[in-house]
Amino acid sequence: MLKVENFSVSFSYNSSQLSKKQVSAITSLDIEVKAGEIMAVVGQSGAGKSLLAHAILGILPRNAHTAGKIYFKGRSLTAQRIKKIRGKEIALIPQSINYLNPLLKVGTQVARAARLSGLKNRDEAKQAAHSALARYLLDDSVAKYYPFQLSGGMARRILTATATVGMADLLLADEPTNGLDALAAEEALGHLRELADTGKAVLLITHDIESVLKITDRVSVFYDGITLEVANTSDFTGKLCLRHPYTTALWAALPTNSFTSPPSQATTPSNGKTGGCPYHLHCAKHGPDCADELPRMQELRDGLVRCHNA
């Protein structure tokens, strides 16, 4: 459904004395999502996860430069093509209700999303909105609410309804569990699983690796703008199945596991400036090559890993 190859995003800033500065946000990203599958992108805050969704949708700010290839349904996803199909074939489930219009009733907004996704008829759109809300167990009275009147869990369901009211085949879910308690988070993720089971592809962006493991098929681990590993969900059981030292450390740091912290305290990610593996400063296994050369992505045990010592 979606394939992203060696994708990068950088920003140019006007720094002092009229000179321009380039800052790299995503250095090298590879991802593939198939129909009927949930692919989770996991990484720390500031790793560039949300940028990925915005890059796919072509809604990055103007000072952003992208390189690399994005394919959607086998064809290259160009700037012109994404303009035509975003909201129709690819939909975003945004991070928070800040993405809704605060002055419009939510029912109206869901209906508007339905019209933008291709339903020309106003009544049809209303009907579609009604059934989208009903699908997420929201009754008609909720349609008359304004965004600020929603609870966290309700807001999640509205945002999901907005994205799924059309016929999008690919859904990008940005931090769907943020600010939700365990029960509401489970429900939100359950909805994503249902959507994948109806044949849609779901790209799930999150920092919370633990809660997504229950529903995702594969996990792509992202660190400082670089994809370090693509693992199967079943790899996150014992210690030996994971491929990259960062993934192993991330897994071990969970309170339910050993809650261990990295050997060296966190320093600012280098933003790919060094050219080596972005994790080498914290890595227990790092060797002489790690600082200088970015390892190539290689296949290992039915997954992918970018590590010299894997």
Binding site: S45, L250, A266
Partner: peptide
């Protein structure tokens, strides 16, 4: 925050 940052 992610698990590693949280533990740290």
């Amino acid at each position: 925050l992610d698990a590693l940052t949280q533990a740290g």
